[in-house]
């Protein structure tokens, strides 16, 4: 197990290196920060001075090495727009994203898994068909448009919940959190619900098909022939088996949620890292985009690693050695 983890971390380091190279070269090729930052009244000399001050006059490999060296010491540079260290910007906004994503995940798992197991066990029940159609509809509504719909209904027409912003925050561990105040929770509810719909649909479908698949296995037939109580059949035999794919996919979904939070944050003006990314793309704020991509890669790599380890712990047939 230990050697497996070490090997995986090694692979991840290579992946991160390749990613940083791709991102850096890609950004270099297409966007010119000087053009963004320079005012209309800049002379050619002014532009050159600006380029030099940003270190853009050096050859590309040197720029990359300097960048890599800085990144390894935790320095992602200064934002062109905010004129502040990029890492500060990102960490300032990370709690907003995390709390929203976590709330959505909890909602999604708490509703999706029981619903999926129930419909998997009751394949012929009319409610199962209704659930199945509802998940297809939920799955078919693009997340951003669903967000608009939620705003239209709950903010514009019913005026129950606010449509944008974070509301009151409470400082904790050096960052502001919304989930500790009523106003903050009211603000968080719509964006989190928007994300949760997708999770509920995905979890329900996956759990249902997992349940159906396991119920057809020989060992379930044999377990039924043993005459053990039904709750045991479901809680031990079924659950232990479908838990394996559910954990894997829930882990990977966490990544997908962070990705979709970009969309949700934009619509609800939720000041998280997703909105920061898009704002930075619009303003060609290169250091922020690069830092976001590298950090998100780190995050995904870490999630994948944790999922693989959990997988090994849950499935006795897998032993990484």
């Amino acid at each position: 197990m230990a050697s497996f983890i070490i090997r995986r971390i090694g692979q991840s380091a290579v992946l991160l290196f390749i990613m940083s190279l791709l991102v850096f070269v890609g950004m270099y090729m297409v966007s010119d920060p000087v053009a963004v930052l320079a005012g209309d009244d800049f002379t050619a000399a002014d532009r050159e001075a600006l380029a030099r001050s940003l270190g853009l006059d050096r050859p590309l490999p040197l720029q990359y090495l300097a960048f890599l060296g800085n990144v390894l010491t935790g320095d992602f540079g200064q934002s062109y727009v905010y004129n502040r260290p990029v890492l500060d910007l990102i960490f300032e906004r990370l709690p907003a994203t995390l709390e929203m994503v976590c709330l959505a995940m909890v909602l999604g798992v708490a509703i999706g898994i029981p619903l999926g197991i129930w419909s998997g066990l009751n394949r012929r029940h009319p409610a199962t068909r209704a659930v199945s159609f509802a998940t297809t509809v939920g799955y078919s509504i693009p997340n951003f448009w669903q967000a608009l719909l939620l705003i239209l209904v709950f903010s514009v027409w019913l005026r129950w919940l606010p449509a944008s912003g974070r509301g009151d925050t409470v400082p904790l561990l050096g960052a502001g959190w919304s989930f500790l105040t009523i106003d903050g929770l009211r603000h968080m509810l719509l964006p989190a619900a928007n994300l949760a719909v997708a999770i509920v649909c995905m979890q329900t479908r996956l759990t249902r098909s997992g349940t159906e698949e396991v119920m057809f296995q020989d060992y379930m037939m044999f377990a039924r022939s043993k005459g053990i109580p039904r709750w045991r059949l479901v809680n031990r035999h079924l659950l232990r088996n479908i838990l394996i794919p559910i954990v894997t996919i829930t882990g990977l979904e966490l990544g997908a949620l962070i990705a979709f939070s970009t969309v949700t944050e934009t619509v609800f003006s939720w000041p998280g890292i997703g909105k920061l990314l898009l704002d930075s793309i619009y303003r060609s704020d290169r250091p922020v985009v690069v830092a976001y991509m590298i950090l998100i890669t780190v995050m995904f790599v870490a999630i994948n690693l944790v999922v693989d380890i959990l997988y090994a712990l849950l499935d006795p047939r897998i032993r990484y050695s």
């Binding site: 060992y219 044999f222 031990r236 088996n241 394996i244 849950l314 006795p316």
Partner: peptide, 26 residues
Amino acid sequence: YIYQNPMTALNPVLTIGEQLLESIVT
């Protein structure tokens, strides 16, 4: 009931003890 294929009749993620004991307890 004795199932055709013993390798697939036992639940792969539960121990032998658990699968035997649940029948005994029941």
